[in-house]
């Protein structure tokens, strides 16, 4: 078997595919370096949860190789899971049991369980250990699940939309806690969400997925830097050249709006050379980039499919 591993990577997925009757995850390549936080963004049904379940060994890929913390998945999932903290939007704790029972249960399994840290988290999350899970709000249940995950100090956190359905205060508290966790050593996090605000606040790396394909994967800073919205004033006869990286080009009278994913200073000169004048060059939010990236990917796909037909 080919050795994919390099100890620098917490997660490595190489050419991973998985087919279902109505959905296909195709040719996924993903790498997360140790100590980094990757925001994994995609619309509903894009393949985020399927990818994450493959990483957890809960689903076996049809093709490709997956390594998590140096362990081949799904064959070595037990060894990998000792050091993975996993929480997902659809994860529930035992409703008849108390938080204390869950804490004792985790303590009985993980030698790395940190009782002191668990107590600190209880206070920070405003939870009482004698509370039954069934009496907790959704936000409190999410916090309890995160507490159980964090207090055993895993090397890798895999979070599948953990903040979905939370009120802004609870979301803020959880994101802050995750930020603190990352400050403690070489912990890595894969954080999936369709909430770009959460991802923007937390991540070093951004990966977009749509319709089962990775459409972008890059470090956050350079990624945000490469996207710009350029507003131009043009004449009726101004012809705008089809430049590489242009995702969208809209004209309305003497105004044109260009969205580019490969922004550089030379672009302004090129447009000036065509007779256009630059009105403004605007930064884009991650949400705007996400929407543009998905739309352009879908347009490209439909053109390719149309071309093939």
């Amino acid at each position: 078997m080919t050795d994919l591993s390099s100890n620098n990577y917490a997660i490595e997925m190489n050419n991973v595919s998985k087919s279902y009757p109505l959905f296909e995850l195709s040719n996924i390549n993903l790498k997360l370096e140790t100590g980094n936080i990757m925001g994994f963004i995609g619309p509903n049904g894009a393949g985020k949860s399927t990818t994450i379940r493959i990483l957890m060994g809960l689903i076996q890929q049809d093709q490709g190789q997956v390594r998590v913390l140096g362990h081949q998945m799904p064959d070595q999932q037990v060894a990998a899971k000792w050091d993975i903290g996993y929480a997902s939007e659809d994860m529930r704790l035992y409703s008849k049991a108390t938080i204390a029972w869950h804490m004792d249960y985790m303590k009985s399994i993980y030698s790395s369980w940190d009782s002191g840290y668990a107590k600190t988290l209880l206070k920070r999350f405003d939870l009482l250990d004698n509370h039954q899970i069934k009496g907790l709000s959704h936000g409190q249940r999410v916090k309890a699940a995160l507490l159980l995950m964090l207090a055993r100090r895993p090397k890798l956190l895999i979070l599948d939309e953990p903040t979905t359905g939370l009120d802004p205060v609870a979301r803020h508290e959880i994101l802050n806690e995750l930020m603190d966790v990352l400050l403690e050593g070489d912990r890595s996090i894969l954080f999936s969400s369709h909430n770009t605000q959460d991802i923007e606040q937390l991540s070093d790396l951004i990966t977009f997925i749509d319709k089962g394909k990775i459409i972008a994967s890059q470090d956050k800073e350079s990624y945000l830097e490469s996207w710009r919205r350029i507003r131009l004033t043009i004449n009726d006869d101004t012809k705008l050249p089809p430049l590489k990286g242009i995702v969208e080009q809209r004209r309305s009278g003497h105004q044109a709006i260009i969205t580019t994913k490969l922004f550089n200073d030379e672009l302004a000169d090129i447009y000036k050379g065509c007779g256009a004048s630059i009105t403004s060059v605007e930064n884009m939010t991650l949400e705007e980039i996400f929407v543009s990236e998905v739309q352009s990917s879908r347009l490209l796909e439909s053109q390719t499919t149309g071309g093939l037909k």
Binding site: V78, S88, L93, M149
Partner: peptide
């Protein structure tokens, strides 16, 4: 049905365990 299986499967176990 109650989705506690997801919690269980996050522990170091396989489907066979």
């Amino acid at each position: 049905k109650d989705q506690t299986l997801t919690f269980l499967m996050s522990l170091p176990i396989t489907c066979m365990d």
